[in-house]
Write a protein that binds this DNA or RNA. Sequence first.
DNA 1: AGGTGTTTGTCGTGAACTATGACAAACTCA
DNA 2: TGAGTTTGTCATAGTTCACGACAAACACCT
Lengths: 406, 406
Amino acid sequence: MVSAVRAPQVRQSNLALVLDLLRRLGPQSRSDLVARTGLTRSAIAGLVTELEVQRLVVEAPPSSDGSPGRPSPIVRIDDRHYGVFAIEVLVDEIGAAVVSLDGAVVHSIRRARGRRSSSLASTVRDVAGLVRRLDEQRRSPVLGGDERNIIGIGVSVPGLVRRADNAIVVAPNLGWVEADFARSLADVLEHDLPISIGNDAELGALAESRFGAGVGASHLLFVSGEVGVGGGLVVGGQPLAGHNGFAAEVGHLSVNPFGSGCRCGAVGCWETEIGEHALLRRAGLAEFGGRRSVDELLARAATGDTRVRAALDEEAKWLAIGLSGLINVFDPDRVVLGGLLGRVLPHLRERLDAELVGRRFQHVSRDVEVLGAALGEQSTTVGAAELAFGDLLRDPARTSPRGSGA
Amino acid sequence: MVSAVRAPQVRQSNLALVLDLLRRLGPQSRSDLVARTGLTRSAIAGLVTELEVQRLVVEAPPSSDGSPGRPSPIVRIDDRHYGVFAIEVLVDEIGAAVVSLDGAVVHSIRRARGRRSSSLASTVRDVAGLVRRLDEQRRSPVLGGDERNIIGIGVSVPGLVRRADNAIVVAPNLGWVEADFARSLADVLEHDLPISIGNDAELGALAESRFGAGVGASHLLFVSGEVGVGGGLVVGGQPLAGHNGFAAEVGHLSVNPFGSGCRCGAVGCWETEIGEHALLRRAGLAEFGGRRSVDELLARAATGDTRVRAALDEEAKWLAIGLSGLINVFDPDRVVLGGLLGRVLPHLRERLDAELVGRRFQHVSRDVEVLGAALGEQSTTVGAAELAFGDLLRDPARTSPRGSGA
DNA sequence: AGGTGTTTGTCGTGAACTATGACAAACTCA
DNA sequence: TGAGTTTGTCATAGTTCACGACAAACACCT
């Protein structure tokens, strides 16, 4: 059944629109909202009042900005009343954070863990423990004194999440197959907060599009690379999930049929050419050296080390090969590079731009900006929070029957 | 400004929904519409009545199907009252057709033309002439007797169409750059029918998604190959146009950095590996032999010619390389192959399926169906018609102030 | 200091939908 | 023929936004 529009839908949609505008464009006057939405002053008044009653926005007294006429009150997101728990599951670390409605990370704690303890059961246990500790800390008058109303939990995992049932189909680095993390976590935590779960790269894309380097873009292509390469497409503020919800695997675009085997099972995937291992190998550094080797590489790049320079040129070339293809297929107006790719971007920007220009379709100028990610390490956390805020953002009116603190 | 929902929008949206359901799912009873939309009986009654007044649908007397209760009248698209002119501009041929609201080609005429006469001015002149002749023919009591109300013109061109101003940015095979075909045609034809224009492959994708092999798919990837390879993505019935409107160039995905130069300026584009020229060359046939050579190839494939078989295997391999990447990135539930690719599909289906399975990400089953196009040569014509019907489909109520016959 | 012009919030009325419920119509089955 | 079921129709009610009039709050000028 395709959704028909009913009468109450109108208000819901307009409330969501106003809230979205305030989040996207920041604080603005009622008159700005009138101009941007095309609604009348009285309609905006009603909507803003309702959002204010729900404690989703606050109105500041009008500030006279020098223009003639009666000044309009400034409306902005109320970041004090609502929050979500954002969970980040990594291979050797887990993190939990409280994120407010304006996308700010209010509290966060992390915890390292051995590679041995990455089973589903132990991960769920560890995450639950972390969430409980986070909740204590944030409420403690000394450490936080936070009385925010927590309305959901968002989880970021390095794996494929099936949209239909929120289950993890496969998470290669964790060794999980068909794991229903959300349900397991809900069983261990003893409250009824809704738990949503998403792919790390896709959530990074969402975060960058709403609060990072992708703000204002109509079609955003996000590519995040570490060892693996993931990404996502965000069109008009909403991520393109695909039929199953798997549409983030840009790392497994075939770019080199004569290349090396990929852990995904295919040959010559993009991530085998632009991933961390390839870059380190070409630079003559320890391929599996991890973050330390990457830091070393960046340090040497600054000094002009020739082998590192050559490796970065090669990286730029392969990056351009994949990107130009994706640009031809998607026609985005902005490309944001995250993770390792974002960090090395300044060192290969010139070469990358030249390669991209050379590969332009029919020399048609496309006005694609290529930027580094702006949220850094917080992008997946913020993305997980966006996921958890999803229900609220879609239907701001139904705030009443929501869970309070954990 | 993001669009806010106002009161009249509700009716417009629901009218469009009912019309869309009738087009997509075929004739159905009022009760079916009630069930599918979630609206009440009285609401559906009002909507259907309005569509009937506009002569967009007709109601057939209820047929008793054996179930208890009062039988419900069957509503179906009225294909007799409205139509559009669908124009297809090819390199050596132009076509014009009258297409009815249910996507059927009612009348069509074509005209060959020399490669010399492909300039913008002469093409516009030829197209205008063809449209006038088509209009005469369709009205003539002998040939057609068609009194359909023509409400727009849709044009398919082999080139990049900029969404912002409907202009053709570049059409390589025609030698056009920054050509405002729509305006030129409007100047020559002396009526005020709205003219919309689109990329041929993108329109093919639209047509297949609404009336062809893509019906029912939520995420459709369409790839059409002749000499060039184009395509399109259709999500939820709407094509993904991209920021500029260029998002159809799947042929220029980089799949082989060590391959041959592409006419687009890059190296190793998908179309250099799966396009008509590559296939004919590998099969030992005349690379530039055109349709005749393709027919020869298909004939030999049926007889089991070894060189042709090898060429088809190679075609399947490269097809799979590109498709698996696109499937990883988009996660479609259906892939439709058109043009040459659709014709050779039966001859390489086995090999293609095997290659696709081998390249599946982490052996995750995705339920992607790969099908040949169902509309054949008519797909771009039907797609151009869909484009021209766009305004009507989006806002079925505003039928009154529309142009009559050309 | 006070008047004028401009912009904005508020309030009451009206218009456009859809929802609801009662009732009649049309069919199947016993 | 009558009971049960499903459906169309109609009148009423409930939402929501649009519109217009009025008052409030500011800048600017005299």
